[in-house]
C-alpha cells in the first residue's frame, strides 16, 4: 500500500555520494530554471504544497526512480498544470503554438514581487478547534498501517517504517494543516502536530545502535495513547 517515495529504511541503495561543500547551488542551468519555474507556477495559486508533493509521489515507480530531483519537479509541475486545468495536454505538445492570453495571467508572479513572496513563505499553522490529546512525555502509538484514510492511495505523511510503533512525544508544534485532507481538496482541517521520538529498536528488526532514536513530526490523527 506504499508508494515509491516512501523509502525510509529501505535496503540496497549503496553509499551516499557526498558532494563538496562549495559545489554550485545548481549543477546545470536547467536545474535552476526548473526550480524557479515551479515556484513561479505555484504562485498562480491553483495548488498547495500537499497537492504538489502528492503529484510527484504519483509518478510511476519507474519514472520516480529514473528521474533526477529536478526532473521529478518538472514532471510534477507539468502534471499539476494539466490536472488543475491551467494547461491542456495539447498545450504541452505544442509549446510554440499561440494559445493566447490565459485567464490566470493576472496572477502572474512579477519579478518585483519575488523577494517579498519568498520572504513571507507559506506558514502551515492554523487555528483549530481540535484540542491536543497528548503532551510531551506521553507515550503514543502510530496507526498500524500508514495510508490516507479519505482517498485510497492518497497522500499521507506517516512513513511506512514508522507505522505501528510506540514512541514518546517530545515537542508540541501547535495546530497545522493536515496533509491527508489538504492534498485532496478536502480543506485545511488543521489539527495538533507533535514531534515523536521512537527508539531505533521500535522501528527496525536489527537496530544499528540500541540507544539511537528517530524523531518524526506526526499529526494527532496518526496517533493514539499507548498505555
Amino acid at each position: 500500500m506504499s508508494r515509491v517515495h516512501d523509502m525510509g529504511g529501505r535496503f540496497g541503495d549503496g553509499p551516499v555520494e557526498v558532494d563538496v561543500e562549495d559545489a554550485p547551488v545548481f549543477k546545470e542551468e536547467w536545474h535552476a530554471r526548473a526550480l524557479a519555474l515551479t515556484l513561479a507556477s505555484a504562485g498562480l495559486g491553483q495548488w498547495n504544497i500537499d497537492t504538489s508533493r502528492h503529484m510527484r509521489e504519483r509518478l510511476s515507480p519507474q519514472d520516480y526512480t529514473a528521474f533526477s530531483y529536478y526532473e521529478k519537479w518538472l514532471a510534477g509541475v507539468a502534471g499539476l498544470l494539466v490536472e488543475t486545468g491551467v494547461l491542456t495536454v495539447q498545450d504541452l505538445q505544442t509549446p510554440e503554438a499561440d494559445g493566447g492570453c490565459h485567464p490566470l495571467a493576472e496572477r502572474r508572479l512579477s519579478a518585483e514581487r519575488v523577494a517579498g513572496v519568498l520572504a513571507s513563505g507559506g506558514p502551515s499553522d492554523r487555528a483549530s478547534d481540535v484540542a491536543p490529546q497528548f503532551k510531551p512525555g506521553d507515550k503514543v502509538r502510530t496507526l498500524t498501517h500508514a495510508g490516507n484514510r479519505f482517498v485510497d492511495g492518497g497522500h499521507t505523511r506517516l512513513p511506512s517504517y514508522a507505522a505501528g510503533a510506540v514512541g514518546e512525544v517530545v515537542l508540541y508544534h501547535g495546530t497545522h494543516v493536515f496533509p491527508d485532507r489538504s492534498a485532496h481538496g478536502l480543506g485545511d482541517a488543521p489539527e495538533p502536530l507533535y514531534a515523536v521520538a521512537f527508539p531505533a529498536t521500535a522501528l527496525w528488526v536489527i537496530a544499528e545502535d540500541d540507544g539511537d532514536e528517530v524523531v518524526l513530526d506526526l499529526w494527532q490523527s496518526y496517533l493514539e495513547l499507548a498505555s
Partner: peptide, 24 residues
C-alpha cells in the same frame, strides 16, 4: 523540457522570465 514549459507559460502570460531570474 523546462524550456518548453517556460515557453508555453510565458506565451500565455502565466510566468515572467524575469521573475525566474530573480528567484534563481
Amino acid at each position: 523540457r523546462v524550456k518548453a514549459l517556460e515557453t508555453i507559460l510565458t506565451k500565455r502570460g502565466l510566468i515572467d522570465p524575469a521573475a525566474l531570474d530573480e528567484i534563481i
